[in-house]
Design a protein around this nucleic acid. Sequence first.
DNA 1: AGTTCGTAGATCCTATAGGATCTTTCCTGG
DNA 2: CCAGGAAAGATCCTATAGGATCTACGAACT
Lengths: 222, 222
Amino acid sequence: MARPLSLVRLHRPTLGDDVYETLRSAVLEHILAPGDRVNIDALARELDVSPTPVREALARLESEGLLRKRPRAGYTVSPLLTVAEFNDMFDMRLLLECAAARWAAERATDEQCEELTAEAARTVEGGDDRTWHAAFTALDARLHDLVAELSASPLLRESINRLHSHLHLHRRYFPYDQTAITNDEHRVLAAAIRDRDPGRAEAAMRLHLIRARERHLVAFEE
Amino acid sequence: MARPLSLVRLHRPTLGDDVYETLRSAVLEHILAPGDRVNIDALARELDVSPTPVREALARLESEGLLRKRPRAGYTVSPLLTVAEFNDMFDMRLLLECAAARWAAERATDEQCEELTAEAARTVEGGDDRTWHAAFTALDARLHDLVAELSASPLLRESINRLHSHLHLHRRYFPYDQTAITNDEHRVLAAAIRDRDPGRAEAAMRLHLIRARERHLVAFEE
DNA sequence: AGTTCGTAGATCCTATAGGATCTTTCCTGG
DNA sequence: CCAGGAAAGATCCTATAGGATCTACGAACT
């Protein structure tokens, strides 16, 4: 007999899952900075757990590309991307996220379009630089994930999320003074999808990403 | 002082790495079949190792999507794709591999084109069904990976390889009697790339993939 | 016959310990 | 001063053990 989906959720996460989430956040929030050594025993002591769940969590994070492992010499946080890698990533973003926008315009339900429009209308105001920046990047990430969800392609959504993990390492270098323009670009994109115009949706996403690339590249020159 | 790259390779793989490779092959070769329970203790006994490296290897394979984990209830091999998932995967293949063909036509060196042409000229002959089939699927995978390599986008190549791991679960159902047509399609693709014609390369890859989709879908109807 | 409950055994998860390997520091010789 | 070697300490890796949880089976009840 098939297990009802709601009962699948009754499995509590293991300690290893908790360690994974903790470490993943630490990497994405630069508490563990790009290039840092990741000391298994020290982490186990700090988290007050044994090394076994730490090792499992690290193995997962390595498979996801956030950490690098040298056999018998341990793990380091993956470095920030070189300019070449960064450009490769944006080429991939253009490929994947333009497709997501196009497919979303073709496939999204009316309810989903309403949700996307509401999300694109959100702005972030106030707070100090750090909390404001965190809120903005969360908002941006949520909108992009929503578009990927509306594409109705789970594999595409997963690929985009995987790319975003790497991009997230760079987000702290995002220039703050470009966010109003970004908000406008989000709204143009959402309108094209709501209007069921794949061509316009793709063009809006392309423009948004090309602009985002330029904004990020400034940080490489500093 | 920076460590010379050649010395990085002197790190021998760990037992955990060996277990990972063994299990990955077991999944891709259906020795561990889709849907099978994966028993940690039994595997450790069978491989004559402790459970710790087994657990790490399993965590990595789960991150890659080849296994599924339920906390405290263990792992199973990911099931064969449903028709919907299969179609999603081919939509993704069309998106990624057509881009790879286009970029390869724009970016490959002359030497790389010679290598691709030679690879596309290869055929597999003789042997019993099982060894013949394994050799053909290896040849097909190698050609697709070579196109991805010639795209000069590491992220694209990695995404394609990730997709192929999943496709590989279905390869044993590939209809044997379509391989001569597949070989022809490979050669048309290689010629378009060698001729530096992105449009033709993309069209050749698209045709090849659409045909491959049809060939595979036959297996779902049986 | 079907359902529910309890128990036993299997399996999963994590802690601990010990050996192998790496890294860092210090000393010696040129 | 610099380079090489040795030793000590830190870290990584894996095995083992024990407790928690799950699964399967049998018995009892309706």
